[in-house]
Structure formats: structure tokens, C-alpha cells
């Protein structure tokens, strides 16, 4: 077990190192002078030279890379070129809306997706199963910025039930905060509900056809006990895996959702950063999100042994 954890940690560090090198080289190997790219088309020679000096671009590449990694490990993610403030400060200011949206989306996707999947597997070919098949085909195919505008049109513009867009910080009251997040959460979670429900259904179907399920039924176990005590526990590993993957992939959808609903989160920070060519921000968000992805995957791999004692490494 300890050997496995160690091996897993080493490969995690290796992957992060590769991501780091890749992101580092992206800007350096791009056609043209990185300082000129950052400065924009109308910059003078002095401004470009200043940026080059500020970023330490005159040093050899390995030195630049090691300095970059050292600074990041010390919590210094560089300074935004446009705002002139530390990147980490800018990111932490935008963290609340993004986290609120992500967490609500995961709660909705997991509860609805898992229950949908269990019901569909319980009565294969039944009405829930057919509904799920249709819904999941749609859930995969409608991008969040299309479903988002449909939801806004029908639930905000036409009926005035919910606010059209915007974000209210949690400090200003739980009610307004929640009401503003309903539409974005629903729009963003559709694809994840479809994904989680499909995997839950497949995983449950596999377990339900096992011999011990027949034994449980023969003993007279109730449907509830069969589904939740006997089946769900054994179907848990794949379900947990997809929940982890979904969470890690969420950030891509968050970027689009925040733009549709005008939520001032990290996604909007990135989009604004592209328009301003604020490379330190793009670079930091990339490395932080992929770090999160790797961390979530690591946690899930290690959590397998906790939910399924049969798994031994």
C-alpha cells in the first residue's frame, strides 16, 4: 500500500512537472518575442525592453524555469501585466463565485445523476430508462451557452421568475445568492447529470446481474435494500471515478457559464486576460486548474481502498 501511494505520488509530481514545462515553453516557443506579444501591437521599444527585464526574459531558459517554479512553490504566481497586482490576489478575489457555481453544480449533478441512474437501472427499458436515454443524448449535445440562453429566455425574460444574470456575494444574503445561481447551476449541470447518470446506470446494471443479487432477492430483501445496500455500494467505484472526472473538467464549462450569466469569477478573469494578453494570469490559471485535476484524481485513486476493501495495491 505504502509503495503504491509512493509510486502514485511520484507519477503525480512527474505529470505536474511536464505540465509546468509545457506551460512554460508555450509562451517562450511562440512565434515572435514574448515581451512584444505581451506588450501588444502598439508598444514602443522601451516598453518591450521593460517587460523583458521585468519577466527576466534575458536569463537562460533553465534559470527562468527554475525561478518560475521556485516562486510558485513560495506562493508567488507573478504580477498581472494589465492590473499590476499579484496574480494570486486577483484569483482569490474571483474564487467565491466560481467555487459557489462549481459546488452547487456538483451537488445537483451528483444527486440527480445518481438517483436517475439507479432508477433507470432498477427498471431497464422502463419509462425512467427511456427518459434518461433521451435526456442524456441531449445533455451531451447542448452546449452550456445554448442551454443557458434558453433558460434565461424562458425563466427570466418571459416569466420574470428568476434574475437574468449577475452574481450576488454570499455576504449579501443567502437568498439572493442562491436565486442568482439557480439558472447557471442548472445550465452547467445538464451535461454532468447525463454523464453521471449514464455511468451509474451501467455500473448498477453490471452489479444487479451478479449472483449475490439473486440471492438477496431470494432471501426476500426489499427493493430499497437491494438497490442501496447490496448494489450501490458495489457499483460505487466507477461512480466515484466519474464524479471526480466531472469535477476536474468543470472549469472548462465554468468559463463559458460565467460569460453567459455575467458572473465575475475565474472564468471571466481568464477571458479578460486573453483580451489583454495578460499572460501571467493565463499561465497561473492553467497550472492551478491542472494541479487541481491531478490532485482530485490522486485523491480518488487513494479513496478506492476506503470504499472498496477488496481493492489492495
Amino acid at each position: 500500500m505504502a509503495a503504491y501511494i509512493l509510486r502514485r505520488l511520484v507519477s503525480t509530481v512527474a505529470v505536474m512537472a511536464i505540465v509546468g514545462i509545457f506551460i512554460f515553453l508555450l509562451l517562450r516557443l511562440a512565434p515572435g518575442d514574448p515581451a512584444a506579444i505581451i506588450a501588444g501591437r502598439s508598444a514602443t521599444e522601451e516598453i518591450i525592453a521593460g517587460i523583458r527585464e521585468q519577466l527576466g526574459l534575458n536569463d537562460p531558459m533553465p534559470v527562468q524555469f527554475l525561478r518560475w517554479v521556485r516562486d510558485m512553490l513560495g506562493g508567488d504566481f507573478g504580477t498581472s501585466i494589465f492590473a499590476g497586482r499579484p496574480v494570486l490576489e486577483l484569483i482569490s478575489q474571483r474564487l467565491e463565485p466560481t467555487l459557489s457555481l462549481s459546488i452547487l453544480t456538483m451537488i445537483l449533478a451528483v444527486t440527480v445523476g445518481v438517483s436517475f441512474g439507479i432508477l433507470a437501472a432498477w427498471r431497464t427499458g422502463g419509462i425512467v430508462d427511456r427518459l434518461l436515454a433521451a435526456f442524456s443524448a441531449l445533455g451531451y449535445s447542448v452546449p452550456v451557452f445554448v442551454s443557458g440562453y434558453f433558460l434565461i429566455y424562458f425563466f427570466a425574460i418571459r416569466t420574470h421568475w428568476l434574475p437574468v444574470q449577475g452574481y450576488v456575494p454570499i455576504d449579501s444574503g443567502l437568498g439572493p445568492w442562491f436565486v442568482h445561481l439557480i439558472l447557471p447551476t442548472v445550465a452547467l449541470s445538464l451535461a454532468y447529470i447525463a454523464f453521471i447518470a449514464r455511468v451509474t446506470r451501467a455500473s448498477m446494471l453490471e452489479v444487479l446481474s451478479e449472483d449475490y443479487m439473486r440471492t438477496a432477492a431470494a432471501k426476500g430483501a426489499s427493493s430499497y435494500a437491494m438497490l442501496f445496500h447490496h448494489a450501490l455500494k458495489n457499483a460505487g467505484v466507477p461512480i466515484l471515478t466519474v464524479i471526480g472526472i466531472s469535477f476536474a473538467y468543470l472549469i472548462g464549462g465554468v468559463v463559458l457559464t460565467e460569460t453567459v450569466f455575467n458572473i465575475p469569477g475565474i472564468g471571466r478573469l481568464v477571458v479578460d486576460a486573453i483580451n489583454n494578453r495578460d499572460y501571467p494570469i493565463i499561465q497561473s490559471v492553467l497550472i492551478l486548474t491542472s494541479g487541481l485535476y491531478v490532485l482530485v484524481n490522486l485523491t480518488i485513486d487513494l479513496a478506492y481502498t476506503l470504499i472498496d476493501p477488496r481493492i489492495r495495491y
Partner: peptide, 13 residues
Amino acid sequence: GLMSIPTILLAIA
């Protein structure tokens, strides 16, 4: 490593 960077962010970068 490439897989750990969200698709849309990598494309944006």
C-alpha cells in the same frame, strides 16, 4: 500532462 489541462483553457492559451 496534456489531459490534465482543461480543453478549453488549453485551446485559449
